[in-house]
Design a protein around this nucleic acid. Structure first.
Lengths: 220, 220
DNA sequence: TCATTTTTGTTGTAAAAACAACGGAACTTA
DNA sequence: TAAGTTCCGTTGTTTTTACAACAAAAATGA
């Protein structure tokens, strides 16, 4: 069992910074660890955008509900990953999304006001940190870019294939598990669940894919 | 007629930095101004991600074509706006998108290698600059977030209404011009052009909207 | 000005998706 | 183990979209 410091210091935010200085920065950012049970909210839409989170253990989901209550999974974050930093960096006052723990989780929360602007007193590595933060945010933009690409596909089949292809790339294998059940995958692809189910069956019948539960194989 | 320096120095990238230091930074970044005619490419997909652009005059479009040639307008940038910085900040080697001048344009190109990492020699304001850059990239992420939200709508009507509502917010009026012709709007919303046209007509018939060419009124 | 090109709206048809409803499998938990 | 719950696939119906083809209007340009 790794302790929180091992996890957190592996985060790309602290890339190139040694343990001692990371510790100093953590205290400068007034970090604290909070436990959340499965399905508990970490942040709710409208909350002030004052904190960023780093997942120590467990997993969180960034979720947006629109006016008619349709749930929309925007992203996920697992151990070592950072979330909600974009809103802080954009200097928003309140969060346009909610974050839920999708498993029992430990989250490190950090005050972002210290993080974003230069703080003279504490950290010689502050500018490297911001540089790392910049890279992190930019990478997130790219992921969103890809999501927008996926959503711009017209048919359910194209969306499924685009998604599964990206999972192949990610896992480095044509066989992999996806982190969603059917309803969640449907939400992620922004299609109807039953339509997704039947499309998946059709694709299996045609020999394009195979799957059992959340285990998938992209055949062709 | 404003000169390029006036435009560029108004960019949020240089917020809080005085003219003299901006000049120093511009030379440190090895900037140059390049003219492009309408529809000429500024960058092509696959080009090295070494430069960022600032629009001095005119307008550019960030475009992605997928494997079957469907054009996808990801974003636009007008005078004073920055583009392609996300790919540089994410330290990508090559661009996943193309950029075209949608009008005759003057673009300032800047070498990003100097920009991202601390350069000791030139600029006392470098860390403020990176901080500004961070904010810019984060804002862009938010815009993409909204685009993903729009694309996740199931029907053409919902997409149109979401888009028009955002334009109302942006312009501060229920009556406004959109920067697209029909085909471009269809591409942006990721729907079929003719389906878009007929949906627009239907919505007009129902008294929801009114429009003439690219001038729209959101009535209800 | 006239011809050409581009843009937009319309319509009919085929394809696809949403929706609703149901049944069975798998998993929980009392 | 039995009852209840959640998850998944299936099917039929309705709604919506894509696609193709065409005509009118507007813009372009020679």
């Amino acid at each position: 069992m790794k302790n929180f410091f091992e996890i957190v210091s592996m985060s790309p935010l602290f890339c190139g910074i040694d343990a001692d200085n990371i510790k100093k920065m953590l205290s400068c950012f007034e970090t604290r660890i909070v436990r959340y049970n499965k399905n508990q909210p970490v942040f709710l839409q409208g909350d002030p955008a004052r904190f960023i989170g780093i997942v120590v253990s467990g997993k969180v989901r960034i979720v947006k509900e629109d006016y008619n209550g349709t749930r929309n999974i925007l992203a996920e974050a697992g151990p070592g990953e950072v979330f909600a930093e974009v809103f802080a960096c954009a200097r928003l006052n309140s969060l346009p999304v909610s974050v839920f723990a999708s498993e029992n989780s430990e989250i490190m929360l950090a005050d972002c006001s210290r993080m974003i602007s230069q703080c003279s007193r504490c950290c010689s590595f502050h500018s490297l940190f911001i540089s790392n933060l910049l890279q992190t945010v930019a990478r997130k933009t790219l992921i969103l870019n890809r999501k927008a690409e996926l959503l711009s596909k017209r048919t359910t089949r194209e969306k499924v294939l685009t998604y599964l292809s990206s999972q192949v790339e990610l896992s480095g294998s044509r066989e992999f598990n996806i982190p969603f059940d059917r309803q969640e995958l449907a939400d992620f692809l922004s299609v109807d669940r039953s339509a997704l189910s039947s499309e998946l069956s059709r694709m299996r019948k045609e020999g394009l894919i195979d799957f059992h539960k959340n285990h998938f194989v992209l055949l062709k």
